[in-house]
Design a binder for these strands. Structure first.
Lengths: 192, 192
DNA sequence: GTCTATAATACGATAGAC
DNA sequence: GTCTATCGTATTATAGAC
């Protein structure tokens, strides 16, 4: 595989990544992807065998990005409470994108949750990587047995905030919700 | 419009209602609908001008059903706290459907939230009817100014529970989540 | 009014020239 | 390896027979 080849492949993945988020997987056509990536029409099949293969590459790409981000947080933020608050803050910081296109992993999961078994498993990986990292933080905080449950609760609260904020196009609700999550984390840290 | 005509129309709406929930709007084709409703192929266009018109009819139908249900709850359940708990219980009672196909209004809203402005407004109506009814209960409980916010919070918590329960196919998480919501409502009732 | 046959289009995917 | 031309299919939608 040549260097140019690798670059083109990356351009396709980047374009698909954006489009799948903004428009959803099913509403994004090959024409959309090749136009955005500036790649000739049928050329995509040299790099990917099918649309689903592109999605798998997009998910791998997102997992790498998220993994790097979480590792960086683990390394540079010393207390688990602050790490959890960092997670909450990324929701607040992403307000415009969340109001426009929803949660990148939540909306993808919803799109495949209905019936597609294989892709349901793929999109679940995005939840898993956050779930495990969050559980790790709660465990370090002292909640050894409850860590998994608390992690799922935090994810659920975040998902709910994003959905309602998006439906009502209300950035204030998202802001107040994340503040409430910080208070919840603070209480958990206090009584650990 | 004849009586038979009206019946056929209703069969189409019922079939589409189920399919849009189970498979999603975009993944449901006319072929699916006419097969389920047992109506001849192109005949649908006598009743509806487009697929979107069918969706609007489906939403109207759901709004009527929900409206009737909420009115019944308002009439037969005397305390606002019990009414809110009734709302929470319908989530728990719907566990199998929610794990399979997600929230009927949440998943529909997500499907259109990405770009379709008109349909986004339509699906928002499903949130509105619950939101207003829930706010009414919180207001009767004594939370006059906070009623709207509490109503949105309850909706958000419910949406989050459903998304995470579905992704992890975990009925236990949904059950514990609804129990926690009951406790939350109970506290609010106590300190009202 | 009811239904069949079919148009028109957009899509994912392929074949084969260079 | 890269790209163009095109296929087959599924979809929404219509035209027109009865």
């Amino acid at each position: 595989m040549s260097a140019k080849s690798e670059l083109t492949r990356q351009r396709i993945v980047d374009a698909a990544n954006q489009l799948f988020y903004r428009k959803g997987f099913h509403r994004t056509s090959f024409s959309d992807v090749v136009a955005e990536a500036d790649v000739p029409r049928g050329n995509i099949y040299y790099y990917f065998r099918s649309k689903e293969e592109i999605l798998k590459a997009v998910i791998r790409h997102r997992l790498e990005t998220i993994g790097t981000m979480l590792a960086e947080w683990s390394k540079n933020i010393d207390r688990p409470q602050r790490r959890l608050e960092r997670f909450v803050r990324i929701m607040y910081d992403s307000t415009p994108a969340l109001l426009r296109s929803g949660c990148p992993m939540g909306s993808l999961a919803m799109e495949f949750a209905k019936d597609d078994a294989e892709m349901k498993g793929e999109s679940k990986k995005l939840f898993d990587i956050f779930q495990q990292w969050l559980a790790q933080q709660f465990a370090e905080m002292g909640y050894r047995e409850e860590a998994q449950e608390l992690s799922l609760q935090l994810l659920a609260r975040g998902q709910g905030l994003i959905v309602v904020s998006q439906v009502y196009q209300d950035p204030g609700f998202l802001e107040r919700g994340t503040q409430e999550l910080d208070r919840w984390i603070d209480e958990l840290a206090r009584y650990a």
